[in-house]
């Protein structure tokens, strides 16, 4: 394993299998003992060029549990970016004030570029439609925690598989652990061929469905995503399918006892509230796991553990 210290985390593919396991093990330790003042005297910059309250608060919480300080902005509105400053200049400036930069940016590939110009490590907190590796790692943590292992699980991904960035990264990561993939989506939002190529090249299997009930008895994990009306070229098609990908409590009857429902949140209506009380619902715990995982990533990159 290469040392994670000083290395940016831009894409989930920046980490190999061993490095992923290392981060998850560290996160497990932070779950047992969350308050560890190892980041004292460190300054973390949090640059959110577009708002994402959930991700930002999760990072801020992780920094503060570790005793670090945080500076930055929550949207591009009030910053020099609005005056036309280049991303490079913003990164070079902020790197003078901090030990590490957490960045969220609406432009695809901006995180890789930032990591190339920045003298301090970058953690990508989402770059447009591209990557969101800390989300992916917290998903992996949640899967391992609920299933006991990441190896050879059957994962069903449901909803918008065409534009859903979290499911693409999760396929890339789980391909390192021998998963079987079950893709459930309307015709026009099927998994892109580039992602399916990834699965095939890893020598693994995927199956495609349009009916969510088909995977219910097989799945170890049900990974729900939101379907947005504006993604459909034909509004009529959206009207036809919009209710077919909503998970209700009664639908879970035929699922395994060990099965768990994940969702990157925020949800709108794709999981009805009667699922929340079912012990198979795991999405709120999943969000909580995000803090442990981000603590682990910060500690690993700053070389404090």
């Amino acid at each position: 394993m290469k040392d994670l210290k000083g290395r940016s985390l831009v894409s989930i593919t920046d980490y190999n299998r061993e490095e992923i396991i290392h981060i998850l093990d560290m996160a497990e330790d932070f779950e047992k003992n969350q308050r560890q003042q190892i980041l004292g005297g460190h300054v973390i910059a949090s640059l959110f060029f577009e708002p994402s309250t959930r991700t930002r608060l999760s990072f801020e919480s992780a920094v503060q549990y570790l005793g670090g300080s945080i500076i930055g902005f929550a949207s591009a509105d009030t910053t020099s970016v609005r005056k036309g400053e280049s991303l490079k200049d913003t990164i070079l400036t902020v790197s003078n004030y901090s030990d590490l930069i957490v960045m969220r940016n609406p432009t695809d590939g901006s995180a890789r570029y930032a990591s190339e110009v920045s003298p301090v490590p970058i953690i990508n907190a989402g770059d447009g439609a591209n990557q969101h590796p800390t989300q992916c790692l917290l998903d992996l943590y949640s899967i391992r925690k609920t299933q006991g292992s990441l190896d050879n699980i059957h994962i069903a991904m449901i909803g918008d598989l065409k534009y859903g960035r979290t499911v693409h990264s999760l396929v890339q990561a789980l391909s390192l652990f021998g998963a079987t993939f079950h893709f459930v989506s309307p015709e026009s939002l099927k998994m892109p061929s580039a992602v399916k190529t990834w699965v095939k090249k890893a020598g693994l299997e995927y199956h495609q469905y349009t009916d969510i009930m088909d995977i219910m008895p097989i799945a170890d994990i049900l990974y729900m995503t939101r379907i947005q009306g504006e993604r459909f070229p034909d509004p009529l098609e959206y009207e036809k399918v919009k209710n077919s990908y909503i998970l209700e409590n009664s639908m879970l009857e035929t699922s395994k006892d060990s099965m768990r429902v994940l969702h990157p949140l925020p949800r709108v209506n794709e999981i009805t509230e009667d699922v929340d009380d079912n012990p198979k619902a795991y999405y709120f715990q999943q969000a909580k796991n995000g803090v442990y995982v981000r603590q682990a990533i910060l500690a690993a990159i700053l070389g404090l553990k």
Partner: peptide, 27 residues
């Protein structure tokens, strides 16, 4: 969007078709 020179790796997809994978946006 920014002043960044492009950079692609040349890959083959599962059908053996040549494709260019962007180093930045990963498309």
């Amino acid at each position: 969007i920014q002043d960044v020179p492009t950079n692609f790796s040349v890959i083959n997809d599962h059908k053996g078709q040549m494709k260019l994978a962007c180093h930045y946006c990963e498309k």
